[in-house]
């Protein structure tokens, strides 16, 4: 189904630009054209379709659903909703407070917020298009697991005492009140409204991510064409144990969203970097970023902030090791 993009890249690179398929430059340009055209078409079409389906899902409904759920169900559904609910990362603080002041435990709220940057429709589409369904499925399951276990862990150590005072008070007030049961009535949307929402969503998301695609694929193409063939495979290909924590640490100062990093992932895997090391690097780049963590300071004390950060780094390292071992056995 994706061959048309290979043909397009063949034609543009070899016929129009006259580059040789054997040259490094030709290789890199081909990779770039094929991936960018494929990703753009995939994103525009699929974001529209997905938005049509989820037009009536929003954070308010998720909050009402999660309110009063028992913990086991709460962590799972918090993480799942984190993956599928559209919301902009600049809303994380209001969402955190909205959940907290509805009496939802910190762990469930964090399951939602940790999963959200890791898994979203753009990430899943890119993974499917570039790396196939097996890695996509694995990535999604890992993302959910990190959210669920991370949330459960935070509650088990009593993380709520390290919230900022006003947030903790809001949580305690909500506990004393009886659940209000003010479930926001699901609006019935007409198709025209859904279409309108989906159109805006597609142009909004595309407007935000198109440059990340160019940057990510550009880096991937550079890796593809200019890192000597076999260099990565030779030096890091055995999944040396230290390479995983090193990849995680390297990912911290690199700040990108999933859109920018997945094309790089593709290139790393093709060049022989083990899957576990690659996934650890990718998740660290996407989820462990200082600018967004500093924002959370408004609602969390340093202690909790540092705990969440450490939690992410440790889990990505464990995930990387585990995947490397499993994929070496397969």
């Amino acid at each position: 189904m994706f061959e048309i993009f290979t043909q397009l890249a063949d034609w543009l690179t070899y016929s129009m630009l006259g580059l040789s398929p054997q040259s490094k430059l030709g290789d890199a340009v081909h990779f770039f054209i094929e991936d960018v055209s494929k990703i753009y078409v995939l994103l525009l079409v699929m974001i529209y379709v997905i938005a049509l389906l989820r037009a009536s899902l929003n954070v308010e409904r998720v909050r009402d659903y999660l309110q009063g759920k028992n913990k086991g169900v709460g962590y799972l559904s918090g993480a799942v909703f984190g993956a599928v609910t559209p919301f902009c990362s600049c809303s994380s603080i209001p969402v955190f407070l909205g959940f907290t002041s509805a009496g939802i435990p910190v762990g469930i709220t964090m399951a939602f917020l940790l999963t959200s940057p890791l898994i979203n429709e753009v990430a899943v589409l890119l993974l499917m298009g570039l790396l196939g369904w097996k890695i996509t499925l694995m990535y999604v399951l890992i993302g959910l697991t990190v959210g669920i276990l991370g949330g459960a862990f935070l509650d088990s150590i009593g993380a709520e005492r390290w919230l900022q005072d006003f947030a903790l008070k809001a949580l305690q007030n909500a506990r004393q009140r009886k659940p209000a049961g003010q479930v926001a009535a699901a609006q019935k949307l007409t198709f025209a409204q859904r279409h309108q929402f989906a159109k805006e969503e597609a142009s909004d998301i595309f407007g935000r991510v198109w440059k990340w695609v160019i940057i990510g694929v550009g880096l991937g193409a550079a890796l593809h064409g200019f890192v000597p063939e076999g260099w990565i495979a030779q030096h890091l290909g055995d999944g040396q144990w230290w390479s995983v924590p090193a990849a995680v640490v390297l990912g911290i100062p690199l700040y990108s969203n999933a859109t920018g990093v997945i094309p790089v992932m593709e290139s790393l895997i093709v060049n022989g970097l083990p899957v576990g090391t690659t996934v650890a690097f990718c998740m660290s780049t996407v989820a462990a970023s200082f600018p967004e963590f500093i924002l959370l300071k408004q609602v969390m004390q340093w202690r909790l902030l540092a705990t969440v950060f450490a939690l992410l780094l440790v889990s990505f390292t464990l995930v990387g090791w585990l995947l490397n071992v499993v994929s070496a056995l397969m």
Partner: peptide, 26 residues
């Protein structure tokens, strides 16, 4: 964030006119 929480708003930007929330989320 404390004020935003008191209005019960979770999706920003939200518009409040004369203390009435008229719009959220975009």
């Amino acid at each position: 964030p404390q004020v935003i929480m008191q209005y019960g708003v979770m999706s920003t930007p939200a518009v409040v006119i004369d203390d009435q929330i008229v719009h959220t989320g975009s």
